[in-house]
Design a protein around this nucleic acid. Structure first.
Length: 897
RNA sequence: GGGCCUGUAGCUCAGUUGGUUAGAGCAUGCGCUUGAUAAGCGCAGGGUCACUGGUUCGAGCCCAGUCAGGCCCA
């Protein structure tokens, strides 16, 4: 009998599966989107909307996409999708950085010793880049990112390369490009100058030496001595001693003249005691650094004299307070040398071996780090070695070859940043930086950066189109670069490497007999020129937003800013957003993590959990800080996903048989319906504001809370009786469906930027023909503010009633709450509220008694249990045909047998 | 070593101009339900707000230092 009545219930029914099975379902949706060119359709739909330009920073076309890429790309896409649904037209052109050392290095390894002509190398590099562009493209697309994936921008496209050259031409035209012999970071492993970004620090053990520099007789008077005296210097790079041309002291530092074992020497008083073998005790005489300026000394093993100079970079942290100066081998040294007129001596070749110029036959041809002990022995033989010791310090290494780098002077090309530094700093102020401290970072980077070394001794890159005459004088003009750009646009940069110098010179109208430069341009110029090659050509300048990891303040944000300011005096972006790095749960970077040693690759993760889970993870985090990644966090996120999915599912189940035409007018809604609908409006308002502020984690929290608290635990739970037991045609039931329909429609649109696949799946399940991503966000109507007082009270009363209900349950007096009746004592409730209270408590009966303080008493419900709706009541079982039913169910059964 | 940041329950986040017993969701435990069931509901426990010191009548919020972590630079 009871089974029959169950058939008269309107239980939720839907084909929307509880199990998401995203790894299977998502690729099908992706195929559908690609098949119907959804990206194109969206652009067409928004063609009259205001445009919003998010310019993609090009990742390096090397290796699989990892979690860091996933984080950044998902954030970009959530911005794009939310802007699209807010009505903007959002074209997105993804890009890749193709040139550069890492690829060339890989290719050189693969090629081994065979064919090393530039064109072969370059062809292999291009193939390598294309391979990884395809791989990464598939991985990014799989994330559900909409964009012009068929026409991305590649920094190796001839048209792009031409614009890189035109950018350079503009800077040449302004006179900001020059050539100079200057110490640069030099990788002996890769035999090239390196950019700052290509260097990493790691511990290295070096031989350090304390060396006597004998003061010349002519300076004895200055020191008030008449016997031989030496200056003690300390260095961790003995191999640079052949290039020593001076000694620096700090003007304000105190120096002492010491005597020990009949020998006189000078050292900073603060450091004397730390000298190995120091036993001299108190100094005989004291000097300020300023007193020592101009003292002449004899080079320890070369026939050369040097002087003492003042410099502000001298410290008394380590060493002797006297700093050995080799202008060809250090940045500080070089600058001091420039100031006082020292030569830039750098007797080291490309491989890091000392040359004839070093002046010591035994050292010629020796790798610098192998030369250190030879220099030490030389010093010892000359009686100039005070002491030597092993010294461990963080030392710069080449990020590719892992060999220690050296400072070495070579002729390089530079951009004179001082030409436009002030302008760049001014432009920084006009940009909105999120988080705000980003402005400090980039300002610091721009303020302190030295001139930009733009030449590289590599082949996989845009050529620096310079010529040299037989005396080595460079020929480089803006016109010449522009002519090259025009040809490159047509023929690609291989043309420069394939063609004879004579041939190119002739085309450019240059004299004969010139030598073709073989350097390439720093890849940071490549990517930095994207505002010209992409934003100006294919989008609209300046871009509204750049969004990259926070390491790019010194990287792409800076190179883009500098080239843009140099070319046209404007920042290329209006707003810059940064995300932190993916770290493990202890806040450690993944590569140092105990748990996640390898970079976690994106695709295996997506194939296992689904893109929407990964995207939900991204949305759940405040990405402005570092973003933790762990199994536990993903388990939690998966739980949250189920919450949303199941909420949507039960809504769809309850909407079975409902169509918008059956919607009921507001005037017919119950108070609960009105309240929940108003809460939905609050949710919409909150979420739209959060999207506007790019605070996706606020969207996440608001949506999850709404689903679990407002819907699942309250509205849907309370409405079960109405939905299951009322007659299908009942107004109360239709009113609830009207609200649920609105809720699910809004909810799906709101989550679409975060979970594009699940949103689409739901949207289609609702019977829509057209993608949810073509829709606009719902507009927020009037919120629940006007219901606030009453409903805060009602919710509070509900939890007061739940306590004794729970006690009764624990005591086995009742099971489900419908088995209970409640006496509610308190004030402010009218008899008219009784039915509402009974509904929201989900009990069979509520009795009101007035009292000063609020309390509730629970007892097992009296009367007969209706077998259909499970409610107890004194009026139940009165109908002769249906003796087991309550009056409401009797009616429902009679209406709808 | 320097610059810029971060540090609130197991996890993810809120905490307005410093002002009562620091909040939410999830997770956990216990119970209920079996008409959202590889689901749902209820109740409960859980935080010296990284640490130390200071300013204040009062500090998670302000100041100084320490520790841990990140990015960048040396």
């Amino acid at each position: 009998m009871a089974v029959d009545y169950k058939l008269t219930l309107q239980l939720p029914k839907t084909d929307f599966p509880m199990k998401a099975d995203l790894p299977t379902r998502e690729p099908k949706l992706l195929e559908k989107w690609k098949g119907e060119d959804l990206y194109g359709k969206i652009l067409e739909r928004r063609k009259n909307g205001p445009s919003f330009i998010l310019h993609d920073g090009p990742p390096f076309a090397n290796g699989d996409a990892h979690m860091g890429h996933a984080l950044n790309m998902t954030l970009k896409d959530m911005v794009l999708k939310s802007k699209n649904m807010a009505g903007y037209q959002v074209p997105f052109i993804p890009g890749w950085d193709c040139h550069g050392l890492p690829i060339e290095h890989k290719v050189m390894k693969e090629l081994g010793d065979q064919a090393k002509d530039p064109v072969t190398i370059r062809q292999n590099c291009e193939a390598y880049a294309r391979k990884y562009i395809d791989i990464q493209r598939n991985q990014f697309e799989r994330l559900g990112v909409f964009g012009d994936w068929q026409n991305p921008y590649l920094t190796m496209d001839p048209a792009y390369e031409a614009d890189v050259l035109r950018t350079l031409a503009s800077i040449v035209e302004k006179g900001w490009v020059y050539q100079a012999l200057r110490p640069v970071y030099w990788s002996t492993g890769c035999q090239t100058a390196l950019a700052e970004a290509e260097i990493e620090y790691s511990p290295k053990l070096d031989l350090s030496v304390f060396v006597r520099f004998s003061v010349l007789d002519s300076s004895f008077a200055k020191l008030g001595v008449s016997t031989p005296v030496s200056i003690l210097i300390w260095t961790t790079t003995p191999w640079t001693l052949p290039a020593n041309l001076g000694v620096a002291v700090g003007a304000g530092i105190a120096y002492g003249l010491y005597q020990q074992n009949g020998e006189h020497f000078l050292a900073a008083t603060a450091l004397a005691a730390s000298l190995p073998g120091f036993v001299a005790g108190e100094p005989i005489r004291l000097f300020k650094g300023a007193d020592l300026e101009g003292i002449d000394y004899q080079h320890p093993f070369l026939n050369r004299q040097g002087k003492v100079y003042l410099a502000d970079f001298v410290t008394t942290d380590t060493g002797t307070g006297f700093v050995h100066i080799a202008p060809g081998h250090g940045r500080d040294d070089y600058q001091l040398g420039q100031r006082v007129g020292l030569q830039t001596l750098s007797p080291v070749d490309d491989r890091g071996c000392l040359t004839e110029e070093c002046g010591v036959a035994d050292l010629v041809g020796k790798y610098v780090f192998k030369a250190n002990p030879i220099v030490r022995d030389l010093l010892r033989d000359q009686g100039k070695l005070w002491a030597d010791q092993e010294f461990s310090h963080d030392y710069p290494h080449c990020w590719r070859s892992k060999t220690p780098i050296i400072f070495r002077s070579v002729s390089q090309w530079f951009i004179d940043v001082n030409g436009f530094r002030a302008e760049a700093l001014e432009e920084i102020k006009s940009v909105t930086w999120v988080p705000t401290w980003g402005e400090n970072r980039i300002r610091g980077a721009v303020e302190s950066r030295p001139d930009w070394c733009i030449s590289r001794q590599r082949t996989w890159g845009v050529p620096l189109p310079v010529f040299y005459d037989d005396r080595g004088t460079a020929v480089l003009t803006a016109d010449q670069v522009r002519q090259v750009a025009d040809i490159v646009e047509e023929k690609g940069t291989d043309w420069w490497f394939k063609s004879e110098a004579e041939e190119i010179a002739k085309i450019l109208g240059l004299p004969t007999g010139l030598r073709k430069g073989l350097d390439t341009i720093d890849v940071w110029i490549d990517s930095g020129a994207s505002h010209t090659a992409v934003v100006k050509r294919r989008l609209s300048f300046p871009a509204d937003l750049y969004l990259e990891g926070s390491d790019q303040h010194r990287g792409w944000f800076q190179s883009s800013l500098l080239t843009s300011v140099a070319v046209c005096g404007k920042a290329p972006y209006k707003q810059v957003l940064t995300n932190g790095f993916v770290v493990d749960m202890d806040g450690k970077k993944l590569s140092k993590s105990d748990v996640y040693k390898k970079p976690t690759d994106l695709l295996s993760f997506v194939n296992k959990f689904g893109a929407d889970i990964l995207r939900l993870w991204v949305s759940s985090q405040d990405y402005r800080d570092d973003v933790p990644f762990s199994e536990e966090i993903f388990t939690r996120v998966t739980d949250s996903y189920r919450t949303v999915r199941n909420t949507v599912r039960i809504l769809l189940g309850n909407l079975n048989g409902f169509t918008p035409e059956k919607a009921v007018a507001r005037s017919e809604w119950s108070e609960i319906d009105l309240y929940v609908e108003a809460q939905l409006q609050d949710l919409i308002r909150t979420v739209l504001a959060a999207y506007e502020a790019y605070e996706f984690h606020a969207v996440y929290h608001a949506v999850i809370r709404f689903c679990s608290v407002d819907l699942s635990a309250f509205y849907i739970d309370v409405l079960k009786d109405r939905m299951y037991c009322d007659a299908v045609t009942g107004k109360r039931r239709l009113a609830a469906q009207t609200v649920m329909f609105q809720v699910v429609e809004s909810l799906v649109k709101i989550i679409a930027p975060i979970m594009p696949y699940t949103a689409e799946e739901t949207w289609m399940m609702m019977g829509h023909k057209e993608s949810v991503h073509l829709q606009l966000f719902p507009q927020a109507g009037e919120g629940a503010a006007k219901y606030r007082d009453r409903w805060d009270r009602l919710i509070q009363v509900r939890s007061v009633v739940n306590e004794p209900l729970e006690k009764a349950r624990q005591q086995k007096l009742i099971g489900k709450s419908l088995e209970a009746q409640v006496i509610l004592r308190g004030s402010g409730f009218e008899e008219i509220d009784r039915e509402l209270l009974q509904e929201i408590f989900i009990v069979s009966k509520v009795q009101l008694e007035s009292a000063e303080s609020l309390s509730a008493e629970v007892s097992p419900a009296s009367g007969l249990k209706c077998v259909r709706c499970w409610k107890f009541g004194e009026e139940n079982g009165k109908h002769a045909d249906h003796p087991e039913l309550c009056p409401r169910c009797t009616d429902a059964v009679l209406v709808c047998p």
